[in-house]
């Protein structure tokens, strides 16, 4: 019986590894073809390159695709958006949850609507024009708005589990609302804050649907946009296209390998709780 069970598990593991090839082969395919010359890359196979010219491909791609600038853009946009999302959603959730009055309930209903419905991007574009803010600022604001509902919702659920007595004791010590929130309450939200950071980081870093409206030019573009534009200009240079794909994917993939537990749990928690 035990032996039979052991064999069954072996077979299961082997079949799962075979299945996982369907994930690994396309990823390997992109990497290996980014190291070939133009002729071999155009053959689109899994063979090892006969001429390794990875360095040349990556340098050329970085120059022609304006990759360095895009990487910096991606970092700046993502960090600022995530920061705004964390600040806005935690404070809003805290006040709305603790107040619980009519205004808070109305706002909560709107936030729930925002969980399901997408942002109306065309009118948002007009509003950003009317506000006369830069394209970068507009993008950050829109990304904040698209993630705000979900993150506020996650914080609200968490604040429910923090007893009001904690606020009370902080207030007895004479702390004002801001001090109480920053010094006492916010540090308690660490688990949910990690989730919020991960969800918003992934959503902004990999975003294309909003950035293509706001940041679609050489100086403003983020990494996913470089991939999109680069292919438009180099659709016969597959070695460069793949070098570009790998470069745009690598930062987040490395992060994923180090923080996989947090990232998987965070992304799933974010979607499941909505």
């Amino acid at each position: 019986m035990r032996r039979k069970e052991k064999i069954r598990r072996k077979i299961l593991a082997v079949s799962l590894w075979i299945l996982s090839l369907s994930i690994l082969i396309p990823l390997y395919f992109a990497v290996i073809n980014s190291l070939k010359d133009k002729k071999e890359a155009a053959m689109m196979n899994l063979k090892l390159p006969t001429v390794w010219q990875g360095a040349e491909n990556y340098v050329r791609m970085a120059e022609e695709g304006n990759i360095l600038q895009s990487f910096v853009n991606s970092c700046v946009m993502t960090i600022l958006s995530v920061l705004i999302i964390v600040i806005c959603s935690s404070t809003m959730a805290f006040i709305l949850e603790r107040r619980g009055d009519k205004l808070a309930r109305v706002l909560n209903i709107f936030i729930m609507i925002g969980l399901v419905l997408p942002v109306q991007i065309i009118p948002t574009y007009f509003i950003c024009n009317a506000l006369d803010i830069s394209k970068r600022a507009a993008y950050i604001c829109v990304m904040a708005a698209t993630n705000l509902s979900l993150c506020t919702f996650l914080y609200t659920g968490y604040f429910k589990s923090i007893p009001v007595e904690i606020d009370e004791s902080a207030c007895l010590d004479g702390a004002g609302p801001l001090t109480m929130f920053l010094k006492i309450i916010f540090p308690l939200t660490k688990p949910v804050t990690v989730t919020v950071i991960i969800i918003s980081f992934m959503s902004v870093w990999n975003d294309f649907g909003v950035s293509v409206y706001f940041l679609n030019n050489v100086n403003l573009q983020t990494l996913p946009l470089t991939v999109y534009n680069f292919f438009g200009n180099h659709n016969s240079d597959w070695q460069l296209v793949f070098a570009n794909v790998v470069t745009a994917t690598l930062p987040v993939l490395i992060l994923y390998l180090f923080l996989q537990r947090y990232i998987i749990d965070g992304m799933v928690a974010g979607s499941v709780k909505s």
Binding site: N206, V227, V245, V252
Partner: peptide, 10 residues
Amino acid sequence: VVNSIAVGLI
């Protein structure tokens, strides 16, 4: 975790 544009091109 890979962006859709990269996946699409692959």
